[in-house]
């Protein structure tokens, strides 16, 4: 019964947690109608991937720096992605006065 206190020491806990974070991100991506909500969901997906990398790094990798470096790179990519996405959102808001994902549908030609 008290084995629940040992959860932090097993790889599977982190993998399932990463999968759950990924699932929440996927759900948010499908549900949200605004660009900013989609951006938030994509951050959740990225952090699920990072948790997986860190878990494999700690429990399985022979060289335990690889996962940490990949996670740092994911952080840098996520920051760049957030900056670009937010400036696109601001530009769309200037033109359409809305951040709904359906509004710029007239761009489809």
């Amino acid at each position: 019964m008290f084995q629940i206190l040992n959860l932090g020491g097993s790889l599977e806990t982190y993998l399932v947690l990463g999968a759950v974070l990924f699932g929440f991100g996927l759900f948010g991506m499908a549900l949200r109608k605004t660009f900013i909500g989609m951006l938030i969901a994509s951050e959740l997906i990225l952090s699920g991937a990072s948790v997986n990398f860190m878990a494999f790094n700690h429990f399985l990798a022979p060289d335990p720096t690889v996962g940490q470096i990949i996670t740092l790179f994911i952080m840098a990519i996520a920051a760049a992605e957030a900056a670009i996405a937010l400036s696109i959102i601001i530009a769309i808001y200037r033109n359409y006065r809305s951040i709904d994902a359906d509004t710029p549908a007239e761009l489809n030609g």
Partner: peptide
Amino acid sequence: GSAAMTAALAWVAL
């Protein structure tokens, strides 16, 4: 859909 995806990933992990 997202629950199925999560369950599949967790099933593989476990």
